[in-house]
Nucleic acid binder design. Structure first.
Length: 832
DNA sequence: AAAGCAAGCTTTTTT
DNA sequence: AGCTTGCTTT
């Protein structure tokens, strides 16, 4: 009797299998959270396990929160001492205690991606590492993947000694880590990496945690990377009571190091692992599941399984096609509006999912137009907005001024007349003495290179000290309000950004929201502290803030949607090149793994829907400033036609497609008239708008392919992947590559202009020298032909001197830096 | 020092 | 297209 009777056989098996390694392959909607929570309850209530000894790890705070809530409900008592947290916050909690063992202070700060980037920028500048060929992005991603794979800077250096480019990356990696340590900061990857290092080097620490976490559960195991795998392996090494839950078909984070082999090879690593498959789905209708299955079965190298349900077939999956992307967006807004007016849906039961954040804009516009309330998840994280980061950096500086990055960010924000030169001088002084930037500020009197700005720097330090004093006597949210008032921050931000049409200023609203968030934090936390708040803030994802209470439609990427479910789901932008992304189907460095990951993403998207799924697609859309005409997504073509209902308008009959064939895109629907007709030619097709003549050649083979079976869905095992292959290789790659069209027809002159630019400015400065006689005035003490010295550009020859309204314009050919034109008053050239 | 302008890049996804 | 970045101009 009791709570366990509501579980099905497999679920029950998973709950009862408490000891030893367990792999639960949980298909989408198969009730894995229920299994996990019941398992926790079973461990505590039936096996007498101390809640203190149980750990559950998730990927998002939202998932952790939900799990905690549900465990609270079914566990009689002690639920609060179960450790439920994300990987990252787990590591932070451990490192807050032991970071000193790794040479950090325990109050280290956490850098987000932006912080890391600007730190790396400084480093590249300092050591002259970045080049045209070696992009920042590559350096950062290489370092990130090193950390994901537990490769230290030294190890990377030793492994890549020969290659000069890699040598540079190695240098960047080394210096980046040094800088982080000096700033007492860790980036996201460090949190995991350092925790593993801590365990490896400190047996006593590891053992204490092994003793504590006798039972470990990991959710979304398919998304773990190698470092996370190692972390879990170490923790579970003593008792081996490790239960991992995941679905290899939902592994969608390869780009950030997730290793699908962790789940696929679990049984190899843990030979005695119990494997349990949950295939019964409690979420969606059979039609939706069939659609999902028919897509995902085109992937190789997956654990064989198929979802099924007891519920009925349900409605067919709708496929709606539009000529232009705005039409698609209008349709979604109209459709939701209509359903809502008819009382068929609540807004909060609806989600619109898309591949890239950029796609949200059009949809948002139409939602606003139609008065449909919505919430947008993702895009720029709330905490990485400029105004929020500025204020957080004030808080960071007040809390702990060792983070140079934070201090430098705010020292002249809002403007207080402290320029780059001054900052550089202070930094130089700090570097020489190996002290922090802030400490250097405190002894500004000793910095000889700083003269004029001295008072301003002192004022800044006084202000920070005043805030610190206030921190002791007022609440944190009052402190933040005080910072905003004292610095005139609102005025500053208002001056920086113009209001939108309605006269509101989003940034000001964001600031208000930050104040409320800080107040909420103070209220909900026992012992609120500045560092506590900063830490919490550093690790939140956008999805964590989604509330179920608001009756709003949710707009988000497919990635963000993982783990969620909705009655009605719209998948927008179902086009090859959008979804799957052009990156994954590009012929150059074609990677079959990439397209499989996209397909898993499609699977995730489809399986979010409980009752109704609508796929939409635009034949033409603006992408990165260019119009693109993309074919219907291959993932839609992988769904058998008999599961689909092709309705673009209410009057469009769908019986024509009830033939079990896969649909293809050559049967077209005329939206304006509601008539349906077959297209017979290519040239007049509305896809081939002929605006650049570039997508036409690529289009041709697609039409020819109609007769062939590459879209065949009936026999997916043979045709499925060969269709993918046909796309990857068979199609002229120009189709999906925007570059050629950019270069050829419309703006050749831009290229010419840009490549001539340097020459043009050179010519200009030479021209000045020619015709212009030197005029009277506060004449410089040098003339054309003189050798002069500039503080930054070094030594050069004056090649031109021209009188302007109030100053002299001087052209110099510098030995090192080439030709420059500047004003004499600012250039401060010295004759040599 | 700060404002103004043009070039370039971006957008695949995120803790 | 829109944003950030770096360079020019004042």
């Amino acid at each position: 009797m009791g709570i366990y009777d509501t579980l099905n056989t497999e679920q029950k098996k998973a709950v009862l299998q408490t000891d030893g390694p367990v792999l639960i392959l949980a298909g989408a909607g198969s009730g894995k959270t229920r299994v996990l929570t019941h398992r926790v309850a079973f461990l505590i209530d039936e096996c007498g396990v101390n809640p203190w000894n149980i750990m559950a790890i998730t990927f998002t705070n939202k998932a952790a929160g939900e799990m905690r809530e549900r465990v609270d409900k079914i566990v009689g008592f002690g639920a609060e001492s179960i450790w439920v947290a994300t990987f990252h916050s787990t590591c932070v909690r451990i490192l807050r205690r032991y970071a000193d063992r790794l040479g950090y202070k325990n109050n280290f700060t956490i850098y987000d991606t932006d912080d890391s980037k600007s730190l790396m920028k400084d480093i590249c500048k300092k050591y002259q590492l970045e080049t045209v060929r070696l992009k920042m992005k590559r350096i950062m991603s290489t370092i990130s993947s090193c950390k994901d794979n537990l490769v230290t800077p030294d190890e990377y250096y030793l492994a890549n000694g020969g290659d000069s480019e890699k040598l540079k990356i190695s240098k960047a990696y080394t210096e980046y880590q040094n800088a982080l340590k000096n700033n007492n900061a860790m980036d996201f990857d460090d949190l995991i990496f350092n925790t593993v290092m801590l365990f490896k080097k400190n047996q006593d620490v590891l053992e204490s945690y092994q003793e504590r976490f006798k039972y470990i559960m990991v959710d979304e195991y398919q998304d773990t990377n190698n470092a996370q795998f190692e972390l879990i392996r170490l923790l579970a090494d003593k008792y081996k009571n490790l239960c991992v839950v995941g679905d290899d078909d939902q592994s969608i984070y390869r780009f950030r190091g997730a290793n699908i082999r962790n789940i696929l090879d679990f049984e190899k690593v843990y030979k005695d692992a119990e494997v349990i498959k949950l295939e019964q789905n409690y979420r969606s209708t059979q039609n939706i599941l069939d659609a999902a299955n028919s897509v995902i079965k085109n992937n190789f190298g997956r654990k064989d399984k198929a979802l099924w349900t007891d519920e009925g077939k349900g409605d067919k999956v709708r496929l709606c096609e539009f000529d232009q992307a705005p039409d698609e967006a209008s349709f979604i807004a109209d459709d939701i509006g209509k359903l809502h007016r008819n009382g068929k849906i609540k807004y909060k039961d609806v989600a619109v999912l898309y591949r890239t954040n950029a796609q949200s804009r059009l949809i948002e516009e139409k939602f606003v137009l139609n008065g449909i309330p919505y919430d947008l998840v993702g895009g720029t994280n709330f905490y990485s907005r400029r105004e929020i980061k500025d204020l957080l950096c004030y808080l960071k500086t007040i809390d702990n001024a060792v983070d140079d990055l934070a201090v430098r960010r705010i020292i002249n924000v809002p403007r207080r007349g402290i320029g780059q030169t001054t900052i550089n001088n202070v930094q130089e002084y700090a570097d020489e003495r190996q002290i922090s930037f802030y400490d250097a500020l405190c002894e500004v009197d000793n910095i000889v290179s700083v003269t004029r700005a001295t008072t301003k720097l002192k004022d800044f330090v006084v202000m920070i000290r005043a805030f610190r004093a206030k921190e002791k006597e007022m609440s944190l949210s009052d402190l933040l309000k005080d910072i905003i008032v004292t610095t005139n921050y609102i005025d500053y931000i208002k001056a920086e950004t113009e209001d939108d049409e309605s006269g509101d200023n989003d940034r000001v609203q964001n600031i208000d929201e930050l104040v409320s968030k800080l107040a909420a934090y103070e209220e909900s936390t026992d012992d609120p502290s500045l560092s506590g708040f900063l830490e919490e803030v550093a690790l939140v994802a956008d999805i964590d803030n989604v509330s179920e209470d608001d009756d709003k439609v949710l707009l988000m990427t497919l990635h963000s949607a993982k783990g969620l479910e909705f009655e009605h789901v719209y998948l927008a932008g179902m086009e090859d090149g959008v979804f799957p992304s052009y990156m994954s189907i590009e012929a150059e460095d074609y990677d079959p793994e990439a397209i499989e990951e996209e397909r898993r993403l499609a699977y995730v998207g489809i399986t979010r829907a409980k009752k109704e799924l609508t796929l939409t697609r635009a034949k033409r859309r603006m992408v990165r400033g260019e119009f693109q005409s993309n074919p219907l997504s291959r993932f839609v073509r992988e769904i058998p036609g008999n599961l689909l209902e092709r309705s673009a308008t209410e009057s469009a009959p769908s019986f024509l497609f009830d033939d079990g064939d896969s649909i293809d895109e050559f049967d077209d629907i005329d939206l304006s008239s509601g008539n349906m007709y077959r297209r017979s030619t290519t040239a007049s097709s509305s896809y081939s708008t002929g605006y650049n003549g570039y997508d036409k050649p690529g289009r041709e083979p697609m039409y020819q392919a109609k007769g062939s079976s590459i879209y065949g869905i009936g026999k997916p095992k043979e045709t499925g992947d060969s269709s993918a292959a046909s796309f990857g290789t068979g199609r002229p790659k120009a189709k999906l590559r925007p570059e050629p069209k950019r270069a050829v027809p419309d703006k050749p002159f831009i290229m010419g202009a840009s490549s001539n630019h340097a020459a043009a400015s050179k010519g200009k400065s030479l021209g000045l020298q020619k015709g212009m006689p030197a005029a009277a005035g506060t004449e410089p003490d040098y003339k054309v032909g003189d050798r002069v010295k500039h503080i930054k550009f070094g030594v050069g020859t004056v090649v031109g001197l021209e009188k302007e309204t109030r100053d002299y314009k001087v052209s110099v050919e510098f030995d090192e830096c080439g030709p420059k034109v500047m004003f004499a008053a600012f250039a401060k050239l010295k004759k040599v």
